[in-house]
Design a protein around this nucleic acid. Structure first.
Lengths: 151, 151
DNA sequence: TAGTATTTATTGAAGATTCAATGATTTGGA
DNA sequence: TCCAAATCATTGAATCTTCAATAAATACTA
């Protein structure tokens, strides 16, 4: 129980900066899509994932996974998005347990509202700060750390 | 409005991994402190920040900043933490607008409950995966990106 | 094939966070 | 000094998320 050595100074400094980033970035992203298109960042992500799916359609559980959220969270959000006409849901023809969600034209317009500002913000916050090598570094590190977390 | 070029493949791959990490890490951290000590990760962070403050005491607004949360969020959380006896609040003697929050002995015990598991998890998820050079890389990148977000 | 376990999705309730409004105090300038 | 502006913190309402329970369909196994 006590066999894990504490972090040294360099690890601690890294951890503080990294966890600060992880804590603050979501609010920054959320603010932009909310003011540009009146959706949360999670809602925006759901729409983006659907946009890139075949037939703009995807199973709820796959959608939840790719949007980095729980199925329950997605289910609540999908109800709201469907009520506002940005997605529609229907039973999966090949597996009776599944529900498919599809992006509507209105949802596509919603995306068009938020996307330019989103790209601009991601550039301003992340990529304008990094050299090409650093982009590769960040990508490689992120993929490895993500693999440790994924269930 | 359309002068921001879209992300290229390498940037997009980096962004997807990074935003996935940012989305999923909080839940992983939250799960550990919640099961070890029945506090949220934000509550845990508040206690940790207080632990390292002079006299284990700090102004609410400074505490909110260092714990990476809004003042309103802290205010709600502080009420809960105070009710459970982990912190106490009192008026600042030098500035009548300010409230000071102090960690109690019970709060210190609470920290002791969560800290070993937290260090172990942070090691398992982050530092066990990285070489010393990569720790420095991640720290340097995180600090620069954090500086772009800070208000 | 029957019966059990697993997967998929939704729901309602409980709890947490955000937003806007409020109040109190201090700061700064006329 | 006095007044307006800014700072600090709290609160309640609205919204969002999590958790546990439920239900339906499919997969597995004897």
């Amino acid at each position: 129980m006590s066999d894990a050595p504490w972090l040294d100074d360099e690890e601690m400094a890294t951890w503080l900066a990294f966890v600060g980033l992880v804590s603050r970035l979501p609010a920054a992203l959320d603010g932009q899509v909310r003011s540009d298109a009146d959706v949360s960042y999670f809602e925006y992500t759901v729409l983006v994932v659907l946009e890139h799916a075949e037939d703009r359609t995807m199973r709820m559980s796959d959608l939840a996974y790719l949007a980095n959220g729980s199925l329950s969270r997605l289910s609540h959000v999908a109800r709201r998005l469907e009520q506002e006409g940005f997605i529609r849901r229907f039973a999966c023809p090949t597996d009776g347990r599944s529900t498919l969600a599809a992006l509507t034209d209105a949802g596509l317009e919603k995306l068009a509202q938020a996307a330019p500002g989103h790209v601009k913000l991601v550039r301003a916050l992340i990529f304008d700060e990094l050299t090409r090598d650093e982009v590769r570094q960040l990508g490689a590190l992120s993929r490895r750390l993500l693999d440790r977390i994924q269930p």
